[in-house]
């Protein structure tokens, strides 16, 4: 072994794993073609590289291991279970939309009903209708103003809460869906 051999010997493991730059690789090639000791050494490292490269086949499958870990911990698969926190705003907004639409429809329908009943078909119904329309007519003017303001406040609050729950609901659903 010469001093050159010592220098080359240090490069051989990297050569065997194909990790040398072109210059060093050429130096090793030139030396190895002339030096039997280093040639044998390189053969060893090449063979070792082959053995090591097969080593990963000894490792058990990650997916099987992951399944066992999850089982051992008693974690239940909950693939599509949406957390309550995500469901709540969504449910509230749906309820608000339905009740809002229902209130609007019902309001028109109620007024129509009252008008029809007042026009009369059957005594009882007429009486009921008359009582209802009389009640409506006799509402003092002041009350109407109060009712209008109340309606305005209610509408604002209603749409505010609706918008808020819709926004948080969809944000959380989107966030969860990315999982």
């Amino acid at each position: 072994m010469t001093t050159n051999c010592e220098h080359i010997a240090r490069l051989l493991p990297a050569y065997a794993e194909d990790g040398l730059d072109a210059g060093d690789k050429a130096r090793v090639d030139a030396h190895v073609s002339a030096c039997e000791v280093c040639r044998e050494s390189l053969a060893f490292f090449t063979q070792l590289e082959g053995s090591l490269a097969e080593r990963h086949t000894l490792r058990p499958a990650a997916s099987a291991s992951a399944r066992r870990v999850v089982e051992r911990m008693g974690l239940r698969p909950q693939r599509h279970a949406v957390p309550l926190l995500t469901r709540f705003p969504a449910m509230v907004s749906v309820a608000l939309v339905i009740s809002g639409v229902a209130a609007l429809l019902l309001r028109g329908w109620m007024q129509e009903l009252a008008a029809r009943v007042a026009m009369g078909s059957g005594e009882f119904m007429r009486d009921l209708g008359t009582a209802f329309s009389v009640l409506l007519e006799r509402l003092p003017a002041g009350m109407e103003a109060v009712a209008a303001v109340n309606e305005w406040i209610l509408t604002t609050v209603y749409f505010g809460v609706l918008a808020l729950t819709l926004l948080t609901g969809s944000w959380m659903v989107l966030r969860y869906a990315r999982e």
Binding site: A62, L75, Q78, R79
Partner: peptide
């Protein structure tokens, strides 16, 4: 952390090696 079994299983698979 939010309790997703799937997310944790993916982490285990990724770091098993």
């Amino acid at each position: 952390l939010q309790g997703s079994e799937k997310a944790f299983r993916k982490l285990v698979e990724r770091y098993h090696p």
